[in-house]
Design a protein around this nucleic acid. Structure first.
Lengths: 298, 298
DNA sequence: CTCCTGCGCTGCATTTTTTGCATCGGTTTT
DNA sequence: AAAACCGATGCAAAAAATGCAGCGCAGGAG
């Protein structure tokens, strides 16, 4: 859209930190870009960049303005989506920020199922830790977030949530594999792998360990659940993960057992959006389906 | 703001119902305006006006677009107000749609008091019946609405509300003036004046009368409470009004008594805004003060 | 029926706006 | 001290928007 061109340029300048770099990115002359910025500042009635010796930076007014621009651009996309919808096309694009656990099974299946009925709808899936996911919502980079145990919850409007009991992942021949439910202290007897503290699973385990007498002593700390799941094939260790990212496969040499909720309470997997935002049609519809699918799990 | 120019033109066309008329209003040639519309429709990817033999009219897509434009323009004003605020100027403009009852005493006093502390803030006060007030919020023509017994309540976010018992207004020498509280049936024994049905007072009285055995038989129906209040000076009749629009003045030949809540339940005076909207700084501050003042009345 | 009016639309010349190039003055880095 | 970047600006070229005149079309008046 033409009338947002100046905003796009401004955003590029803010990102690049210098008018010349941004001009290069946007295939335009530095002087033209410079003048756009100046003209805008004049009609806006207020300087939005502070000029530094090595470039420029948004000042508070500029930050406010960019927030406005993002909200406005997102709303325009929503309008276009609604218009496309009422002309019967049923097109659209859905962007989701999600936790790692959703990547292997749940989300691909859901998206594929949705696309069966709406082949015109396309998707962006961004794997994010819970903090980054919420940031994506706030900057309108994502329409939806599907995360385990989010942090802030301000500006995060919960569409639905389901409980997820943390599971212990281990080899089939592991001594703990025989029990139907596993105590936290039993896990600590064996080498264990933990996600980094930016993940909800770790937060819950940290909390539980703090209540108990024994500290967590991870042999491996990783930000990849995929890695940890594969690691336990090679050593008689245990990893932790939420069940939505696990598949019960009797053939597999890996299995999982729930950890006792006496030790570690169940966490919540939340589907949410930016508070107060009205989503594009496609995103809203998909979110409905997602919510229904999640609630069917419990 | 320059980048909204096209939207302003489009709005003008929608209002005028014809490109040529709108061109005249906006001091521009019809051909230039026509091309702007066409260019916009092309880049928007969809026609927004239906071409009629005698002019043009917004189609549904166009309606959606104008809604977006209004929201967007209003948000931009909010940003500018916030920017002005953080540069310490404390300027701004507040627009209020209110019921008639607020006009004589309450609102002037509140605005004057606020302007004592914030002389840079200016106001627009629009007297509206409850339906029009809500429409003003929806089209972003007003930031705030202060109305008695609103109708729809969708998209109306209540900031605060206080109960208002309907009062009977009459001359000091009226036979009913001696009672501390008045029954509805007693009023019906005397000539009575009623507001038109677009007002909350009338709605409550209609409801109450429908429950009773005797119908309302107004000698005068008016959309001006001011008129009705003055009328009772000349005839031994009764009028009805909410107490916030009345002043207790022992000198006056007019007085008021509450109607019994056994007959007519207390209505609500609501201060509200458009749901989900974040108001300009000045409006938000003023609304806070207004809410406090209202709550102090009860 | 014809005529007339008001409508949206378009080709062309003109005006206004935007862009690119070269360059200046200043600050940091080497 | 020199080199490397930075934002700002004067000026001419390029691009975009505008005004003017006129087209075809449809509804209303006579």
């Amino acid at each position: 859209m033409k009338h947002l061109q100046t905003f796009r340029f401004i955003e590029s300048v803010a990102r690049a930190g210098s008018i010349r770099k941004a001009a290069d990115d946007m295939n335009i002359t530095a002087s033209a870009l410079n003048r756009r910025v100046q003209r805008f500042e004049e009609e806006f009635g207020c300087v939005i960049f502070e000029r530094l010796p090595r470039g420029v930076r948004l000042n508070p007014a500029g930050e406010l303005l960019m927030q406005h621009y993002r909200a406005q651009a997102s709303d325009l996309r929503r309008v276009q989506s609604q218009v496309a919808d009422l002309s019967g096309e049923r097109r659209g694009h859905v962007t989701i920020a999600c936790s790692q656990g959703l990547v292997p099974y749940f989300l691909p299946a859901q998206i594929a199922a949705y696309r069966q009925g709406h082949p015109g709808v396309t998707f962006s899936v961004q794997v994010r830790d819970r903090e980054a996911a919420e940031r994506d919502l706030a900057t309108f980079s994502s329409d939806l977030a599907l995360v385990f145990e989010p942090v802030h919850l301000v500006d995060f409007e919960v569409l639905t949530h389901i409980p997820q009991i943390i599971h212990v992942v281990m080899r089939r021949d592991h001594p703990l594999a025989s029990k139907p439910e596993i105590r936290l202290r039993d896990c600590l007897d064996y080498p264990h792998l933990l996600p980094t503290s930016s993940y909800g699973v770790r937060a819950l385990l940290d909390l539980a360990a703090a209540r108990g007498s024994r500290p967590l002593r991870p042999i491996v700390e990783s930000d990849s659940f995929d890695f940890m799941r594969h690691y336990v094939r090679h050593e008689r260790a245990v990893a932790f993960q939420i069940p939505i990212g696990l598949r019960i496969d009797p053939e597999d040499e890996i299995l999982s057992r729930p950890i006792s909720t006496r030790d570690v309470p169940a966490g919540s997997l939340l589907l949410g959006q930016m508070r107060g935002r009205s989503l594009p049609v496609a995103s809203a519809r998909f979110a409905q389906g997602l919510a229904k699918a999640l609630e069917a799990i419990v």
